[in-house]
Structure formats: C-alpha cells, structure tokens
Write a protein that binds this DNA or RNA. Structure first.
Lengths: 336, 336
DNA sequence: CTGATGATTGGGAGCGCTCCCAGTTTCGCT
DNA sequence: AGCGAAACTGGGAGCGCTCCCAATCATCAG
C-alpha cells in the first residue's frame, strides 16, 4: 500500500537483508564461486523477496560492457521498407542477440546527423559491438566503422574491401545456379537484369551469371541494370528485348525486377516459360504471386541476421570466430 | 603512433588540461550557467583537443536517464515482415527519436523469454520509456507494460482499454469513408471482409463500415473475417459470394485481403468495378499493382511512428502531452 | 572604503555495481 | 594435534559523471 514512490532496492539492501557483504551478494548475482551454499541461498531469497533487479547502468559502468549491440542500416530510409529484407534480418538478429543476452539498438544511418549520432554512440561506448548492413561504395558510414575500436560485423561485403568479419550470402553461387538452371532448360540466349553495379551484391550476382555462361560455352551478354524496383525491371526487360529479340532466358538480380520483367515479356507477346524462361533472386513473397509463379534463388535472410548476431556475440565475448558465407538454393516454380 | 591502447579521455583530464575543476567542465558540457567565458572556452578547446566524448554510461548512472527508448513489437515475429507496416513505423519513430536525442532499442516481444527480458530491461532502467505496438487482446505484454513505472505510449489502442497515452489512426473514420465512397458509387449490397475481431483495428474498421451503412439507410451485412493475409482474403470473398450472390460492393479491412478478393471476384466472372466495386485499407504498395488498381484508405504509418516517438519524448521530458488520432484519407483508383 | 548581493568555483559525496586483495575459515593429511 | 592449502569473506577503491553546497570573487550602492 505504501509502495508508490518506493525506491528500487540496491545490491546493498539485498546484502544486508541476507546478512552478507555486498561483495558476496555480487558473487551470487554473477554466480561466481567462493560463496558458501547457505549464504548463496540467503542472497537468492533476499533477491526474490525484495524483487531485486540489478541496475544495468551501474553494472555497465563497472564492467565496461553495455549489454547491447547496434544494428546499423545504411542508406536511405525508404529502402528499408521497399521489401521485407531488413525486417527478416532484424528478426534473425534479434533472436540470436537474445541468446547472447544482448539488447538490440537499431540505427538508421541515412543522414549526416544520424551518422554523427552513431559515431558518438560508438565512441561513448553506448554499445558493445556493431552489425552493419547495406553499405554502399564510398558509404560515409564506413568511416564511422573504421574509427571505432568496437567489433564490427558486416552483413554482406562492401565493394572493394574484405572486412575482418562479415556474414554474406553466396551471391555468386546462387547466380550461377540460376543461370545453369536456365541453361539446363535448354536456353542459349540468356540475358541478365542486374542491380546497381556499385553494390557488391549486384557485382557478385553478375559474376555468377558470367561464370555459368562461360562454363557452358555460351557468350555472356552485357547486363542491363535496374535498381531492384519493379519498375526498373520492366524498363530493363524492354531494353533487352529490343537489343536481343531472340533471347530465350532471363536472370534477374532480384524478384521485384523479375516480376515486372515477366509482365513486360507477356506484354510483348512472349510466353513464359514457353518462349522465355525467367529466374529471379531472393524468393520474396512476390515470387509466388506472379503469373506464372517465379523460379528464384532463395537466400537465407533471417539466417543472415542470426549469424551476424552470433558472430558479433562471439567477438564481444572475446572469441575469435571467422566470417561466414551462407548458401543459397534454387526454388523451381513455373517460370522455367 | 603510440595511440594503440590509449584510454579514452575522461572529464577529469579535460578539466585538468583546461585548468579548471571537473565541476566546471561538467557545466560546460551541459551548458549550464556559472562558468566564466574564458574558462568555458578553455574547456571547449580541451574537449576538442582531447577529442573527448562523455561516457554515456557514467552519465546515465549519475542522471538516471538512459537516453534511449524501447520500441516493442508484440506478436509473432513472422507478422513483422508480412507487410512493410512495422518498417515504416520504425523509420518514423527513429527520425523523431533522433530529434529528442534518444536512441532506439528494438524489442520483439514474441516469446515468453523475450517478454521476460523486456520486463527486466524496464525494471533495470535500461531505457527511459516505451512504445508499444501490435498489442492484441489479453496480450501478456500488457502485464509488462502495467508493471513498469516508465512512460508507455501505445501505437493503436488495445482492445477494451484506453491507455493513458496512445497514438492511433482513425480507423473508424477511414472505414466509414471507404464505405461511403462505395455507397456514393451507387452500391447497395456492400459486404465487408474483416480482420480478426480480437484486434481493436478490425473492430474499429468494422464499426466504421456499420456506421456508414446505417447512416445511408442500408443494412450492414455480417462481415467475413480473415487474418490480413492474401489467402484469407480469397477465402472470405468466396464465402461472401456464396452468401450474397448479389453483392455489388466490397470493403476489405486491408489491401492484402482486398488484392486476393479482387482475383476471386474475377475468377467468379464478376467485373471490377463494373459488377462489384472494391475498396481496401492501408495503401500498401500492392494496391497499385493489383488489376485493376485498388481504391483504398491510406493511413499515415510513418507519422504514427513519428508521433509515438514525439509523445514519448515529451513524456520523458516531463511534459504532459495528450494522445493523438491521426487522420486517414481515401485514395481513389480503378477498383471503384 | 565597506558590507551586501550575486556570480563563480571546486571539493566531495554520491549513482549502484564489480573486483582486487588481505585477512579469516575450513579442510585434508600426516 | 599441527600445518599448509584451498575456500570463503568483506572492506575499499574504483568506473566517469552529476550536483549540492560551502567558500571565494566581483561588483556596486551607500
């Protein structure tokens, strides 16, 4: 009844109630050794009775560990909800972070201001480590990452650099599988709708396409680049149709672009998969909703988040884990 | 060259270098009064020279303010990426939080374990306040919210309770607009595809539908409930067609369900909007991609996040802001 | 020139927890 | 019983910052 402005109990109060020293109580809290059984139990009882919860902040100050990790998503905010990609990464990361008893701090690093805040967060030791996603070429967030002493795990590799720790998806392999699948279906004039070439993802997928074509003794055609939106897929497809009227296979660097490539093809009177077979990448929901449904390369997005968080967790724990490349696999549907 | 294991400078060092006391330096830091101009400048110089950044944790301990707010998303994780809803909320909240110089802690409260961690985070004063989204009836997360002394802002209202602070969207008004629009288009047998009735959102949208019908002197028909997925929209539509073969208008509680209702209608040989007019809700991307494109009610999702964060910011600052209901508006496309 | 008034100043006590360390007990053996 | 080792114990010094407060300084009217 008199608990309105009641202060939260401190460790000292727990200790007093249990009749031990603060040190002993602390040991129980962190279940460290060197506490006699009866005292340990007394402390535990006191904790329960007082409904004690240790103050994170005080603990953080003493241990120099914040108990939190930042997930930084670079690039313009709109892109974060263009597709469910980031949401899935977040779900995966969140789950793994929970495992390591870390909290998730989400930082959208789109503006200069937000990058400055991020830099301060890191310098002020507001988190124990960083996961970095969607970094583009010359992304200013790279400087922030370079300056910090905290462990940084990249999601996907930035263009032109191999960061010490990263988790990536096997984009090259996936793209090769996709292309090989088209070739296996008897396609010879296979074109590619690529993403923006200033991203590692796009480059890797393009490389996979080239490798597969060359390996099959076919001539890789110069790709047409979109920007991962549906509209850009339509535009690229139209261009490719004009350039290679005899094309019989299309590999698009993501499902969004593939979806509208599909429409464009139908609009141009090409039957899919009769005249032209199409493969996408990502396996987003849209892939099942296109007409015909889309053969695509599934990438383990949630796993990507999970593994980033695990890697970071180990790094924070002082272990020496190594980077990871996650496998992709082809999901065959009606468009091939 | 010798800066490898360099400790971060502390306020004491800044003070010493500037030839003032720690207190004075602190005052400069928080630009409090009672510091002579020259000393203030000396401190600022020292800060610059030492590249000093105050330690958040220490400050948090002393001030009892964490500088962070939690955004809690309840419910199963999969739903977080079912549509871009949450991503938009996050973008809005993140921007407004930045304004208030607060960091964003994202908590997915799906499992018991995560709820327990959340409860601890709050009790351990790991954040200064909470935003709570997607709460369902009898959601266990409500207990966590009830127990904390921290300010809590709801996004949408939970069923059967009016929390002290919330930001909601005018679901009733939006649904009424949608229904009135159908009626204005001459429809008389207007049915509704509803969402799960254990959510406030669904109830409110249903209420708007009823109000509009009754106001127009028409008979509200019992709704068919889906679960906001496309598939459930198709199922519900089929059921409604069977029950009311003469229906000429459909109001769906979200765009996903509307999208597949559209397909079902076409599959059943009904022309849209010729025979049947359809209105959705949300104005997701899908609304522009359906055939025909979907008339729908746009809700300001990003604003929802922004206003939640602002409200919370004021609450944390000790002000006494009041709750908010954001307007919705009809976006007319080809389905009506 | 003096006391009063108000602006500065810096010492010191926390905030709540961890951890080192010296001192005390408890044991297991011979 | 005697001894050294191993297991406990609690005092105290931080972690880096804020903020109260008594003390010092400047300034100015009388």
């Amino acid at each position: 009844m008199t608990d309105a402005p009641r202060r939260r109990p401190t460790l000292d109060e727990v200790a007093e109630r249990a009749g031990v020293s603060r040190s002993a109580a602390s040991r129980v809290l962190n279940n460290a050794p060197h506490v006699r059984r009866d005292k340990r139990e007394a402390v535990q009882r006191a904790i329960r009775e007082l409904d004690y919860v240790p103050d994170t902040t005080a603990r953080a100050l003493a241990t120099r560990q914040r108990g939190a990790a930042a997930l930084v998503i670079s690039g313009e905010s709109p892109s974060i909800f263009a597709d469910p990609f980031f949401a899935r990464v977040i779900v995966g990361a969140s789950a793994a972070l929970e495992e390591a008893d870390l909290h998730l701090m989400l930082c959208l690093a789109a503006s200069d201001r937000s990058r400055r805040r991020l830099a301060e967060l890191l310098r002020a030791r507001g988190v124990d480590g960083v996961m970095l996603m969607a970094v583009r070429e010359n992304d200013p967030v790279l400087r922030v990452a370079a300056e910090t002493e905290l462990p940084v795990v990249f999601g996907g590799r930035p263009v032109g650099a191999e960061p010490p720790w990263y988790v990536d998806v096997d984009n090259v392999g996936g793209a090769r599988q996709a292309t090989e699948h088209l070739i296996a279906r008897g396609r010879r004039r296979v074109v590619m709708i690529c993403g923006p070439l200033d991203t590692q993802v796009s480059r890797a997928r393009h490389r996979g396409y080239r490798e597969a074509m060359i390996l099959a003794g076919l001539e890789p055609l110069p790709p047409e680049c979109g920007n991962f939106t549906q509209l850009s897929g339509a535009v690229a497809m139209a261009e490719l149709l004009e350039r290679h009227p005899d094309l019989d296979g299309v590999f698009a660097a993501n499902d969004n672009m593939a979806a509208d490539a599909l429409r464009t093809l139908r609009g141009a009177g090409r039957a899919v998969p009769g005249d032209v077979a199409v493969v996408g990448f990502d396996d987003l929901d849209v892939a099942e909703l296109t007409e015909p449904s889309l053969t695509t390369v599934r990438q383990p997005i949630q796993d990507l988040g999970r593994e980033m968080a695990r890697l970071l967790g180990r790094l924070i724990a002082g272990e020496e884990p190594s980077s990871l490349i996650l496998p992709t696999h082809l999901v065959t549907r009606s468009s091939t």
